[in-house]
């Protein structure tokens, strides 16, 4: 069955005017914000399809910008995102781009902080739901609707075995899992969606137990 909860019919609480072009766009920006884990100083949004055609009218630009500043879909400051960006010293640019054969509402977000940068290609698939299609050029798909671990590590035999063993030992169920690597024994990213609420202690624990991990982030949109 497609719909089960009363709150899928009455909800979400959101800033208008469009669930796909506004609420979904905030979520995409917010995912990039959570992945960066530091204050953003520069962002470039490359919009395609319907996003590129109508972004000004639907406030998609403000929504994306609000998201990378860490706002959620129901924040009434979304319309003032450009002023907020200025206040936080965040430079931004919007361009239109052909991004290949993705969903019509797709955007490439390139977000930079002082030390790090993150790049996601994501689509707003309807009703405020979003799906990341690529992370840092790796074809990794995730929605961040449930707690999601994004792990940068070195590719080596036993990594996934260790990870799933520790998660299982601590009572976590893996809902969705993907690993992509640059080359054998080279850099890799694993994305792991978890059914349970993730305790803050899990991240340092995984880092200690699995020395191959270079960075681990937990993300989830509201």
């Amino acid at each position: 069955m497609k719909y089960q909860s009363p709150f899928e019919i009455i909800g979400p609480i959101m800033v208008g005017p469009s669930s796909s072009h506004t609420a979904g766009a905030v979520r995409i920006g917010n995912i990039a914000h959570q992945l960066l884990t530091e204050e953003p100083v520069h962002v470039r949004f490359s919009l395609m399809g319907s996003f590129a055609e109508t972004y000004e009218g639907h406030g998609t630009d403000l929504a994306l910008l609000a998201g990378v500043l860490g706002l959620s879909t129901d924040d009434e400051r979304i319309p003032t995102a450009k002023q907020l960006a200025q206040h936080h010293g965040l430079e931004y640019e919007f361009t239109r781009k052909k991004l290949g054969s993705y969903h019509p509402n797709t955007v490439l977000v390139e977000l930079k902080g002082n030390r790090k940068e993150v790049k996601i290609l994501a689509s707003s698939v309807g009703g405020g739901k979003v799906e990341v299609q690529e992370l840092d050029d790796y074809p990794l798909k995730f929605s961040a609707e449930i707690p999601t671990l994004v792990i940068n590590h070195r590719d080596q035999q036993g990594f996934l075995a260790n990870l799933s063993f520790i998660l299982n030992e601590h009572g976590y169920n893996i809902a969705r899992l993907a690993l992509e690597r640059f080359k054998k024994n080279g850099p890799a990213i694993t994305v792991c969606e978890i059914d349970n609420i993730v305790e803050p202690s899990l991240l340092p624990l995984l880092r200690n137990e699995i020395p191959l991990i270079e960075e681990i982030r937990k993300i989830q949109t509201e």
């Binding site: 019919i9 009455i10 959101m14 005017p17 669930s19 403000l62 009434e76």
Partner: peptide, 21 residues
């Protein structure tokens, strides 16, 4: 109108039909 002004609404069932209920 609040929806079109980027104000806060509840999608019921969608943003486009958020006024009626």
């Amino acid at each position: 109108e609040v929806n079109a002004a980027m104000g806060r609404i509840v999608a019921t069932p969608t943003a486009g039909s958020a006024g009626i209920l």
